[in-house]
Simulated assay, not measured.
Amino acid sequence: MHIAFLADPLSSFKTYKDSTFAMMREAASRGHVLYAFEQRDMRVVAGRVLADVQTITLTGDADDWYRISATETRDLASFDAVIMRKDPPFDSEYLYATHLLEHAERNGARVFNKPRALRDYNEKLAILRFAQFTTPTLVTSQSDAIRTFLAEHHDVILKPLDGMGGAGIFRLREDDPNIGAILETQTLNGAVTVMVQRYLPAIVDGDKRVLVIAGKPVDWCLARIPKQGETRGNLAAGGTGVARPLSARDREIAETLGPQLVADGLLLVGLDVIGENLTEVNVTSPTCFQEITAQSGINVAGLFVDALEQAVGQR
């Protein structure tokens, strides 16, 4: 297959933990041809979505890890698969990219995850589709509504709807002297919508990343355990990743959501589960491939490329 990865600059990859790199390495090991490009490299000409792409080969070196063997302009429909792996934030440029990718689909491109699904599944708000698995949740821009929710639940987590890696997440208790300032800052005085959820004490045992590939859960998850004095388990916030077999509840959540995720065009999803509760549905660029593989022996990238090959009919 000829596989084009829409991603952040290759020079920014941390290959020891990057899941996109793991995908590339697995695909290359099977003889697939790899290409890379960025959002800014796309354009529409005469109704076709073109991109300036780089043909890349992997060197096996941890630092100087790739070589560019050619650069050319190609129609996205000419690839067997286009893998959207641009990291959030989901800003206006990301939104425009999904529109261009969706137009490329109309011309015959095969894009994973589907652009429409990337738009429809806000990684925070998507849990509202699966309320049977969630903790009490409020979505609002109104400070008074947040104060009422806090008074009811006493201890809550407040998070922006467009963040990643734990950025902008606050834990609020009723006796916090900074509640007003935090609410003003996070909602921009009522102009920005946020999500508020009842605090889950089970976070001390880890914020579990459960990967779902082609509707089926990977048998092990990565529990991201907060560092001392921290509420957030995200690895980017200093959490420690510990791979574990899925619990019965993890599997129940993943297997219940799996068919719907596939039907909506999501080949790869990262579910976040704290204790018994689903907290996020990550669809833009789910990670933790390498950490789970290193600790469990499961070739997660292999499972993903298996699913990709099957999806495009080239196994």
Rank of each mutant, 00 (worst) to 15 (best):
T240R: 14
D306H: 11
A307Y: 00
K216Y: 14
Q290R: 14
A254Q: 02
T279L: 04
R232F: 12
N299I: 13
V305N: 02
E309S: 12
G275H: 08
G233T: 09
T231H: 15
A263V: 13
G206D: 09
R209Y: 00
D264G: 12
I292C: 01
S285W: 09
E309P: 01
L271F: 06
V210T: 10
A301L: 09
C221N: 12
A301N: 05
R209K: 06
L303H: 14
R209D: 00
D306Q: 12
L308S: 02
R232S: 12
G270R: 01
I203L: 13
K208D: 05
Q260S: 15
L267E: 00
E255T: 11
L261Q: 03
L278A: 03
C221R: 07
L268E: 05
Q290T: 09
T240L: 15
I253D: 01
L268H: 04
R249L: 14
D272Y: 03
V269F: 01
G302S: 08
I213K: 03
W220Y: 13
A254N: 05
D272Q: 06
L257A: 10
E252Q: 14
T256G: 09
C221I: 07
V273A: 05
D250V: 07
D250F: 05
E309H: 11
T240H: 13
E291A: 02
R249Q: 13
R251V: 06
G258S: 11
L222K: 00
D207M: 10
D219C: 12
D250W: 04
V305D: 01
P217T: 04
T240W: 10
L235H: 05
I213Y: 05
G233Q: 07
V273K: 02
K216F: 15
L257G: 09
T279A: 03
K208Y: 06
L211Q: 06
T284W: 02
P245F: 01
I203W: 10
L257Q: 10
N277S: 15
L261S: 03
L211Y: 04
E309M: 12
G258R: 08
W220I: 02
K208Q: 07
K227H: 13
G275D: 11
L246R: 13
T287E: 08
E230Y: 02
I253S: 01
T284P: 01
G239F: 05
G241N: 03
R251I: 07
G297R: 07
G302V: 02
L267Y: 00
K227F: 10
P226S: 11
G233I: 09
G206P: 06
D264M: 11
D205K: 10
S285N: 08
E309Y: 06
L268F: 11
F304A: 09
S285Y: 10
L235M: 12
